[in-house]
C-alpha cells in the first residue's frame, strides 16, 4: 500500500472541503477501497474518513425514505421500513457479499464500488479503466464476469452492485454535497456514466463531491422481486440479476420498473422494457418481447454469450413471480 494522509472528518459541510483534490478519496466502510489500495490499483494520497459523520440514519422524507450515506448494508437490509415497503432492496442487499462485509460496507460506498474485472485488479495487464489509454486485456481474455450492455471499444467491465440494481428499479436519487456546500440530487441514470472512451470516469462526482444519502420515493409497486443467479449459492457476484417493482390492476400490469445486474457497465434499466410491459396482461409472449427489447443492442464475447439466454430466463421467471 502506498503512503497516504489520514484525516477524520468531524463536520459534514467541511468534509467536502477536506475531500478536494484529485488524489483524495473518502472512506467509510473501506471494504473495496482498502482492497484496491493493497493491490495498488488505487493509490490515493489522502483519505478523509467520513464514517463518524451523522450520515447513518434512515429517515422519512418526501413520502419516501432518505438513507444516509454511511448506513451499513446490514442495517439497511434489516430496517423494518425497508423490509416492509422496499423488500426488493432488502433482498438485493442480502444477496450481496458476506455478513462481515455487509456490517462494514455503506450505502454510499456500495454505489461507488469498482468493477471486479480481474484485469482491472491485475496491475500486470493493460486496463483502460485503471490506466487510461493502456488498452484492455479483457477483450480477447477471460470474460465470464463481464458486461454485454453499455460496453464500449475501450471497456467491457461490469458494474458489480446488487444494491444499486434494486435502487435503480425503485427510482432512487443520489444526494451529493458539492465542494461549495450545495446539495444536488441525481437519478441513477444521471449519476452513473457509460464507459464510452473514458472508462476511468464512472460517475458524475467531481473533486470534493460527497454522497450524503440516497432518497427513495414512495414505492410505485407492491410486487417486488429480486433474483440473482451466480456461480455458487452464496458470497459471489451476479452472473445475471433482476429487480422488478410491479403494480397490478385488474389482471394487467399497471406499472413496471425492471432493473438488471450482471449485464451492464452500470446498473441497468431500459425505459422501453418498462413501457412494453405497462398496460399489458402478463404472458410468456410479453415477457419474451421485454427480453428482446432489453437485449436488442447486447454485445457479447465468447465468455459472455451465455448471459443472453440466462437473462431471458431470469427476466421471465421474475416477471412471472411479480405478476402472479
Amino acid at each position: 500500500m502506498r503512503e497516504f494522509d489520514y484525516v477524520r472528518a468531524t463536520d459534514t459541510a467541511r468534509a467536502s472541503v477536506e475531500g478536494q483534490g484529485a488524489e483524495t478519496r473518502f472512506i467509510a466502510g473501506g471494504t473495496n477501497l482498502l482492497d484496491l489500495m493493497k493491490l495498488e490499483v488505487m493509490a490515493p494520497s489522502k483519505l478523509v474518513d467520513i464514517s463518524r459523520l451523522p450520515l447513518d440514519r434512515i429517515e422519512e422524507a418526501d413520502g419516501g425514505l432518505r438513507i444516509g450515506a454511511t448506513v451499513t448494508n446490514s442495517d439497511l437490509a434489516a430496517d423494518p421500513r425497508i423490509r416492509a415497503s422496499y423488500p426488493v432492496l432488502s433482498r438485493a442487499l442480502l444477496a450481496g457479499a458476506s455478513g462481515q462485509l455487509r456490517n462494514k460496507a455503506t450505502t454510499g460506498g456500495n454505489l461507488l464500488q469498482r468493477t471486479r474485472c480481474p484485469y482491472f485488479y491485475d496491475t500486470d495487464t493493460p486496463c483502460n479503466k485503471r490506466s487510461p489509454g493502456e488498452g484492455c486485456a479483457a477483450m480477447g481474455g477471460e470474460t465470464r464476469n463481464h458486461a454485454v450492455l453499455g460496453t464500449s471499444e475501450t471497456c467491457i467491465a461490469l458494474h458489480p452492485s446488487d444494491m444499486a440494481v434494486a435502487m435503480r428499479a425503485l427510482d432512487a436519487k443520489v444526494e451529493v454535497q458539492g465542494a461549495g456546500g450545495e446539495t444536488n440530487s441525481f437519478a441513477m441514470e444521471e449519476f452513473y456514466l457509460l464507459p464510452s472512451d473514458t472508462p476511468h470516469i464512472e460517475t458524475i462526482l467531481e473533486s470534493g463531491d460527497l454522497i450524503t444519502g440516497v432518497h427513495l420515493p414512495a414505492p410505485r409497486g407492491d410486487r417486488q422481486v429480486y433474483r440473482k443467479v451466480r456461480d455458487r449459492a452464496s458470497y459471489a457476484f451476479a452472473l445475471v440479476s433482476t429487480a422488478a417493482v410491479v403494480k397490478m390492476e385488474d389482471g394487467r400490469i399497471a406499472d413496471a420498473a425492471v432493473a438488471f445486474g450482471g449485464l451492464g457497465t452500470m446498473p441497468w434499466r431500459d425505459p422501453e422494457v418498462d413501457a412494453a410491459l405497462t398496460g399489458e396482461a402478463p404472458s410468456r409472449a410479453l415477457f419474451d418481447k421485454a427480453a428482446d427489447l432489453l437485449l436488442r443492442e447486447a454485445e457479447v464475447t465468447d465468455g459472455t454469450a451465455f448471459k443472453l439466454p440466462l437473462a431471458r430466463r431470469v427476466l421471465r421467471a421474475v416477471l412471472e413471480e411479480a405478476t402472479a
Binding site: T31, L34, N103
Partner: peptide, 13 residues
C-alpha cells in the same frame, strides 16, 4: 458487537 473483517479496515478508523 458486530462482526467485521479486520483485514479490510484501518486501525485509525
Amino acid at each position: 458487537g458486530r462482526r467485521i473483517n479486520a483485514c479490510l479496515s484501518l486501525a485509525a478508523m
